[in-house]
Design a protein around this nucleic acid. Structure first.
Lengths: 204, 204
DNA sequence: GTTTTATCTGAACGTATGTTCAGATACGGT
DNA sequence: ACCGTATCTGAACATACGTTCAGATAAAAC
């Protein structure tokens, strides 16, 4: 029968995903065994196959979940930020700043998922890889359209919008390699530092 | 007795390293077996142990070799570029441009080694990790000192030199994720596009 | 041409892998 | 209290792993 509320399997599934996420991020997909994941959850390896058909699907599901969440979160926030009664040029800058801060905040809150989404692409099957790449491109397009709008309005100046998009995202992703919460800088300060550099790098 | 010229082992060693580099970059260290490497060289797995004490040392040797080469290449070029008879401010900008172009060129010529050096850090033993990180920091310090000089002279303005260093390097590293030789843009064009963005992002 | 040395093979070692499945277990619905 | 089912165990499967080593082989030294 279909599971109803309160079944303990409703908690085991997420626990497996959480354990796999942490272990994949720490040691890498190929270096983590199903037995390690099972042991982290407190279960035997065979039990995992009630929740995933195989190891590869588990990886894909984690990556797809992350990318979907990322896209949904940005779209929710972006639609909120539209039409704040500014002029078009001001609105582009506001959206660019919002994107910068959103990207940093969202990614710093999910270091493990981000790590996996960028490092384990080569461990995906061909079709799974294509699916993840499509989601990534969708996200990049969000930034790219902002940059294009800015160029059209003359408030931004980039040599090549596609490359500028990738360059800005690469720069923002760099924050993941060094930021640790409780360190020298607050999240707000980090956001502002990067926003300053992003703004200047694409400004007219 | 020590090997003398012409021993075929003088060619087998490099061939093993080249095969390991390519396979590690493509599939990841953990996913590549000693038998795969041996097979790519045309030899049995046991023979590899005449050239490396174990798999881990092979990985470390590749990473250390790459980082050492990177540092040596930059130092050679940087010392050439000093004292071109410009004023101090102009010299800082020249060095920053040289660093930007050097970084892109050097890394695009060695995509496999770069990939490994950034992705396989977690597969290093503790002591090997520390050694590689020290080399990386040395390289980052090269850029950081340029930025500091620029700030001191008032020609650059960055909120935080350490973070700006990491941000610029992250941005430049992003080129590896999309550039393919023979594509839409020449190496020279790519260098110029990134130099434009780097210059603006740190300018006063 | 014989000895010495460097290199490679081929098999073996113990251990680990992803996955399957029959049987045990514990829960939800009635 | 009982049944039906969702879940877990524990063992097994075939296969792969890193590494070792005795013996074969080929090259270098004299």
């Amino acid at each position: 029968m279909a599971r109803t509320q309160g079944s303990h399997s409703d908690i085991t599934g997420p626990r497996i995903r959480a354990a796999a996420l942490q272990l994949f991020a720490q040691h890498g997909y190929a270096a983590v065994s199903m037995r390690q994941i099972a042991s982290a959850v407190g279960v035997q390896a065979g039990a995992l196959y009630n929740y995933t058909p195989d190891k590869q699907s588990l990886l894909f599901s984690l990556m797809e979940g992350h990318m979907t969440e990322l896209l949904a979160a940005w779209r929710a926030q972006d639609s909120d930020n539209r039409g704040d009664g500014q002029d078009a040029a001001g609105q582009v800058m506001a959206r660019l700043e919002a994107f910068t801060r959103f990207h940093i905040r969202f990614h710093l809150e999910r270091p493990d998922a981000v790590f996996i989404a960028y490092m384990e692409l080569r461990n995906l099957s061909e079709e799974n890889f294509v699916a993840i790449e499509a989601l990534r491109r969708e996200y990049e397009d969000a930034l790219q359209s902002i940059l294009r709008d800015g160029v059209r309005l003359g408030v931004l100046n980039v040599p090549d919008p596609k490359i500028a998009t990738l360059a800005v995202i690469a720069m923002l992703n760099g924050v993941m390699t060094w930021y640790r919460s409780g360190g020298r800088l607050s999240l707000e300060e980090v956001e502002s530092i990067y926003w300053d550099m992003v703004r200047k790098s694409v400004q007219a």
